[in-house]
């Protein structure tokens, strides 16, 4: 899937490294999550769901491809989306902790997906108005896809939350466990502030308010309980390269063939 073609014209106010970092964050989130979701293919709870999850994974990897392609162009060092995806080490990845968590059971996958889908919808809705035209175009296209993803994960959250006692317990546990990764989604750092100031990135604290409102609505309709607030972990975030140990194993598998044949065409 090719990236947005045409010359890259960032507004003069934004330092290129800010744009590059911002694009890596967006792209890496979707690359990692798309990879995770693709692991379900052939193992889903029912055939129809194998197809649905594959669609979501395809959309996510497609979005990642466009975002990383643009990132490579912005960087201007000759790296394309494959170079970025397959030849960076984990400390250089900029995805959040939430997406690198393992799939767990279907309940964990759905909760992870739901929390991220709400975030994506709010994010791309904001980015569709980005001052950066290529980014805005990618966001507008992605917004259509992620609204559909949210329809899917939201519906499953209702069905599992308000299904059987077992399904309710499983997703409540998943929600409680994954909740600690959510503050990081809205923790603005210098990159975020610079991107916001330049009009190319979103206002994360405004996003958080929207996010929590949508999440609470679905969680409660699913007869689930909102987990207690959890503070942001101190220190560097995954967005700055401080990942969990999960990412390394995931990347080892993802990158092995490409790295075994550097420079080869596929």
């Amino acid at each position: 899937m090719s990236g947005v073609k045409g010359s890259v014209t960032p507004p003069p106010a934004v330092p290129p490294n800010v744009l590059f970092e911002a694009l890596l964050r967006l792209g890496d989130d979707r690359l990692v999550l798309g990879h995770r979701v693709s692991q379900w293919c052939g193992h889903g709870p029912i055939l129809e769901e194998d197809i649905a999850l594959a669609n979501i994974a395809l959309d996510l990897v497609g979005q990642a491809t466009m975002l990383l392609h643009l990132a490579g162009e912005v960087e201007g060092a000759g790296r394309d989306e494959d170079a970025l995806a397959y030849f960076r080490d984990e400390i250089h990845f900029r995805n959040c902790l939430l997406v690198e968590q393992p799939n767990g059971d279907f309940g964990v996958t759905i909760v992870r997906q739901f929390l991220f889908d709400v975030y994506s919808v709010v994010m791309f809705d904001a980015l569709a108005r980005s001052a950066h035209p290529e980014l805005a175009a990618i966001a507008a296209k992605a917004l259509k896809e992620v609204k559909y993803h949210l329809r899917h994960s939201g519906d499953w959250l209702l069905k599992l939350g308000d299904g059987t006692i077992e399904s309710h317990d499983r997703v409540q546990r998943a929600l409680n466990t994954l909740w600690r990764f959510t503050p990081e989604l809205f923790a603005a750092d210098d990159i975020d502030r610079a991107a916001l100031a330049a009009g190319i990135g979103p206002d994360l604290s405004a996003m958080q308010a929207q996010w929590i409102s949508i999440v609470r609505d679905v969680v409660e309709r699913a007869t689930l309980t909102m987990p207690p607030d959890v503070p942001l972990r101190a220190g560097r975030t995954a967005r700055q390269g401080a990942h969990s140990e999960h990412l390394g194993h995931m990347l080892a598998e993802m990158q092995i063939v490409a790295r075994s044949h550097p420079g080869a065409q596929w």
Binding site: E48, I51, A52, N55, R151, H152, D155, K159
Partner: peptide, 8 residues
């Protein structure tokens, strides 16, 4: 679910 599956 039927609508979503049909679309997929």
């Amino acid at each position: 679910q039927a609508l979503q599956n049909a679309r997929d």
